[in-house]
C-alpha cells in the first residue's frame, strides 16, 4: 500500500491534494472498474470528476474529441465554449446519458460507464432543456424526484417547500407545470436539481431564461451549498461574467477540444487579455458558430471581437 496515488491515477498537477500530507488510500483491486475505488473511510482526496481521453462521435462528427478534465472536491468549475462546442455532449456523458465512444469518467471514484448507478448516486443535474413532466404539478415533479433519490418521506415536504420557496414558486406548488411561464419551468428545474443535496452538481446553462433576481438567488444558493456541504459544481454557461464571478477554475472547449484550463487570472495571463471575455474570445475566435444565430447577435459578436 503506497501512501501516494499510483502513477497515472492523478496525473494532472491540478489534482494533487492540497493538504499535502500523506494520504492513506486503500486501493481496491482494479479490473472491474476503470476507476480505482477508494474506500469510504479514506480522506476525500481524489478528484470529484476525473475524465481521461473522453471522446464521442455522432456518425462522422466528433462532438467531443479526447478531452481530459479534473475537478477537485468542492471546486466550482465553469465550462465555456461557443454553440456546438461539445459542452452538453460532455455533460451528458458525465451524467451517464450518453455512452462515450472512448475514454473513462470517474465521479467520486465511480466509473460512469461500468457502474452507472453508483456514479448516478454522486450527482444532481439541471439540464439545458426542460425535463419536468408538464402534466404534473410542481410539487408532484419534486416529489417524484425526491423518491427516486431516496429522500426520506419525513423530510420530503419540508425540503420541497424550502426549495420552492427559494425559487419563488411556493404559491404555484399545486399548479400543473403546463400552466407555467418558461422562466418558472426553469426555476422548477433548478429547484429539483438541488433537492437531494448532491455531492456533485452539474448545471448545463442553468441561468438561461432566468430573470436577474432568480439568477442572483440561484448563485447565492449554489455558493451556500458549496460552502456548507462542499458541493462540487460543474456548470456550463454563455455568460462570461457568471463564470468569472462564480468559478474557481474554468475550462474552455472549442470544436470538441479543451483549448485552455485555469483560473480567471491564468486564462487572462495566458492570452494577455484584460478581461475574461477578451481571453475567451482570443481562445475561441470571434467567428460565429451557428447559422441560426440572428443578425443582431452576429453584429454584437463582431463588435466584441473588435473591442479586443
Amino acid at each position: 500500500m503506497s501512501g501516494l496515488p499510483p502513477p497515472g491515477y492523478l496525473s494532472s498537477t491540478d489534482l494533487i491534494d492540497e493538504s499535502g500530507g500523506p494520504v492513506i488510500r486503500r486501493i481496491l483491486p482494479a479490473g472491474k472498474d476503470g476507476c480505482q475505488v477508494t474506500a469510504e473511510d479514506v480522506p476525500a482526496s481524489a478528484a470529484a470528476i476525473e475524465v481521461r481521453g473522453l471522446m464521442r462521435r455522432f456518425g462522422n462528427l466528433v462532438a467531443v474529441d479526447r478531452i481530459d478534465l479534473g475537478v477537485r472536491h468542492g471546486e466550482v468549475f465553469a465550462f465555456l465554449g461557443p454553440n456546438g462546442a461539445g459542452k452538453s455532449t460532455t455533460i451528458k456523458m458525465l451524467t451517464t446519458l450518453l455512452r462515450p465512444t472512448e475514454g473513462t469518467i470517474c465521479l467520486n471514484g465511480r466509473d460512469a460507464v461500468r457502474d452507472p448507478t453508483g456514479a448516478r448516486r454522486q450527482f444532481g443535474i439541471v439540464f439545458q432543456d426542460t425535463t419536468v413532466d408538464t402534466e404534473l404539478t410542481a410539487y408532484e415533479n419534486m416529489e417524484l424526484h425526491g423518491v427516486l433519490y431516496g429522500i426520506p418521506r419525513a423530510e420530503m415536504q419540508g425540503r420541497i417547500g424550502s426549495l420552492l420557496e427559494l425559487v419563488r414558486l411556493s404559491d404555484r406548488a399545486n399548479d400543473y407545470v403546463k400552466t407555467f411561464s418558461g422562466g418558472m419551468v426553469r426555476r422548477l428545474e433548478v429547484a429539483r436539481g438541488l433537492l437531494h443535496d448532491p455531492s456533485i452538481l452539474f448545471l448545463d446553462e442553468p441561468t438561461i431564461g432566468l430573470d436577474a433576481q432568480t439568477r442572483a438567488l440561484l448563485w447565492q444558493h449554489v455558493n451556500e451549498m458549496n460552502d456548507r456541504s462542499g458541493t462540487t459544481v460543474f456548470f456550463s454557461t454563455h455568460y462570461i461574467e457568471e463564470a468569472e464571478m462564480a468559478a474557481d477554475r474554468i475550462a474552455v472547449i472549442d470544436h470538441g477540444r479543451i483549448v485552455a484550463t485555469g483560473t480567471v487570472q491564468e486564462l487572462k495571463e495566458r492570452t494577455r487579455a484584460a478581461t475574461l471575455e477578451a481571453a475567451y474570445l482570443s481562445l475561441t475566435g470571434t467567428e460565429v458558430r451557428e447559422e441560426r444565430v440572428t443578425g443582431g447577435e452576429q453584429l454584437r459578436e463582431r463588435i466584441r471581437g473588435q473591442r479586443r
Binding site: T95, T96, L97, T117, R120, R121, F123, I125, F127, D129, T130, T131, V132, D133, T134, H145, L148, Y149, G150, R192
Partner: peptide, 14 residues
Amino acid sequence: QFGFLKETLVAPVS
C-alpha cells in the same frame, strides 16, 4: 422528446 426521460435515466436507480 419532451425531456422527462432524462430525469428518470440519471436517477440513481437501475
